[in-house]
């Protein structure tokens, strides 16, 4: 149960090594000892994340999960719910490549699309069905401002996020009245391991700031979160720029 004051008892991180996902976990752990399920590909990083969460007071289970391989998703997630209610599930996996068209292999493009969009769709439907059965819960989808208006320099990642953002936004409306809420999070540039190779962008933010916005939205019932908040008016302007102008911006 997410209690009356917004603290969950259990948290599922799909993409168990995601910096933002783990920041959300630590934020809840600073309030209470909670149960955390880390789902990700088996790796030293996953084990290390689990060890740190245990040290911070969580009870942790790790589950082997590959976002790109959608076939086992349903049985895997159902298995997690069979162990006990999941109050908050964070869809935190994603791939980000910055490549110009000359270097982009079609197979890599498809892989990114498979993880970021198909993987997100696959777990989204499964989570929604499982949470509807328990009559409560929150699905947190980590989208990105990159999907709000897709840039030429980041068109592949942007297009996958546009798709997953639309999917989760619509899913949230579909679930109105079910007791299950969907929080779509649109951060700007977040300084994480995924973006370590990129230069800082304007309005850059941190995993902790995103986590604070997420826990606040889970409590208040807000379904759409921009981090930082200034991103909302900024993106609103960018969205309405004529294409010929937008294309020339140094973004």
């Amino acid at each position: 149960m997410i209690d009356a004051l917004g603290t969950p008892q259990s948290l599922l991180l799909l993409g168990g090594t995601s910096d933002i996902g783990l920041a959300i976990a630590y934020r809840y752990l600073s309030l209470r000892r909670i149960r955390i399920v880390l789902a990700g590909r088996a790796s030293d990083r996953l084990d290390a994340a689990s060890a740190r969460l245990i040290a911070a007071g969580a009870s942790v289970e790790t589950v082997e999960f590959d976002a790109a391989n959608t076939d086992p998703h349903e049985s895997l997630i159902e298995g997690i719910f069979a162990m006990g209610d999941i109050d908050v599930a964070v869809v935190a996996f994603g791939l980000l490549d910055q490549q110009c068209i000359g270097d982009l292999r079609p197979s890599r493009a498809v892989e990114i699309a498979r993880v970021n969009y198909l993987g997100a769709v696959s777990v989204g439907v499964t989570l929604a069905r499982a949470m509807c059965r328990q009559g409560h819960g929150a699905i947190v989808a980590l989208s990105s401002v990159a999907g709000e208006r897709v840039r030429g320099s980041n068109f592949l990642y942007g297009s996958t996020k546009a798709g997953m953002d639309a999917f989760y936004t619509g899913l949230g409306d579909c679930l109105a009245g079910s007791g299950v809420r969907v929080v779509v999070v649109r951060p700007g540039h977040v300084r994480t391991k995924m973006t370590a190779h990129l230069p800082d962008a304007p309005l850059a933010t941190t995993p902790d700031a995103v986590a604070a916005a997420v826990t606040n939205a889970v409590w208040s019932g807000r379904q759409q979160v921009w981090v930082p908040r200034l991103m909302r008016p900024v993106m609103s302007v960018l969205r309405h720029l004529p294409r010929s102008v937008f294309r020339r911006l140094p973004l």
Binding site: M1, I2, D3, A4, L5, C132, G135, H136, G177, S178, G179, V180
Partner: peptide, 9 residues
């Protein structure tokens, strides 16, 4: 009565 944490039944 406190109006918190709705669930569907």
């Amino acid at each position: 009565w406190g109006g918190t944490a709705p669930t569907r039944a």
